[in-house]
Every structure is written in C-alpha cells, then in structure tokens.
C-alpha cells in the first residue's frame, strides 16, 4: 500500500468559456482516464455534486462532463476560514476511440463521477490472419 501524503490541489478555473449570466465559477475537475480492451473509463473528482446535477454528453467524439452545484453554502454564516472555493465543474475531452454511444454508463459515488465508455465493435482489436498463397 502506498502511504503517500495527499497534497492540496488548488482548483483551476475553466478558461476560454463564454461568460455566464450567473456569477458562478466553473472548475476543471481532476481526472483519471484509463483504457481496457473493452472500454475507456473516465473518473472525475467532483465534490459537492449530486447525481442529479451531473451531465455527461458525447457529441462528435467530444466528451463533456459537467457537474452543477445545487446547494448553497450556509447562508447566514460568517466565514472564519476559506481555503477552497465551491462551484460547478466542467471538462471536455476528445475521444479517439469509436464509442458505443448507446451503452455509456455514468455513476456518481462519494463525489467521484465514473463514466464507462464501451468501445464500439470495430475498435476492438481483431486479429487478421495473413494467408500465404
């Protein structure tokens, strides 16, 4: 087991995004992306976002994950210490593999979004035998 100490990763705001009418902040979530033979999995860190606030969209090979913050911070409270900001999350990826659009699965657990993108049949490795004539 690795007993590495976790470090604070400061949130980065999304750049080059059109201005929003509401004064809300969009952050880039940290992600893990890994590929197996059958699918591509994206795991994104989106604390404070509930399953209903998540929006996953794949359009023209561009995967967009978005998490919208719903609940407000304590309204009548006085801030004594603020080390992190809260807001919504958004990130886009261009997916190189051909994805089976109908079988994309997304789940939210403990502030972690997991999106499983199964590869479409032609993208699965297929061995082509070369015949000697």
């Amino acid at each position: 087991m690795n007993e590495q100490e976790l470090k604070v990763q400061h949130k980065k705001e999304v750049q080059h995004r059109g201005e929003t009418t509401k004064p809300e902040k969009y952050f880039i979530p940290a992600v893990d992306i890994y590929e197996t033979e059958a699918d591509v999995t994206v795991i994104a860190e989106m604390p404070g976002i509930s399953a209903t606030g998540v929006d996953v969209n794949l359009e023209d090979d561009v995967l967009t994950i978005r998490g919208r913050k719903e609940e407000e911070e304590l309204p009548n409270a006085r801030i004594l210490l603020q080390e992190y900001e809260t807001g919504s999350y958004q990130r886009r990826f261009t997916v190189a593999e051909t994805i089976d659009q109908n079988n994309i699965k997304a789940s939210m657990n403990n502030g972690m979004l997991k999106v499983v993108l199964p590869k479409a049949a032609p993208a699965k490795p297929r061995k082509i035998e070369v015949k000697v004539e």
């Binding site: 470090k7 400061h10 911070e73 409270a77 801030i79 210490l81 080390e83 992190y84």
Partner: peptide, 17 residues
C-alpha cells in the same frame, strides 16, 4: 496562492453561525 494556499490536505472552510 488563491484562497489561503493551504498545503495540508484537505483544504477547509470554517463557518460560524
């Protein structure tokens, strides 16, 4: 660093009601 620059994980927000 923005927002206090806490280096110890996790970053905290403390409120008083």
């Amino acid at each position: 660093a923005p927002y206090g620059g806490a280096t110890v994980f996790p970053a905290l927000n403390v409120y008083e009601e």
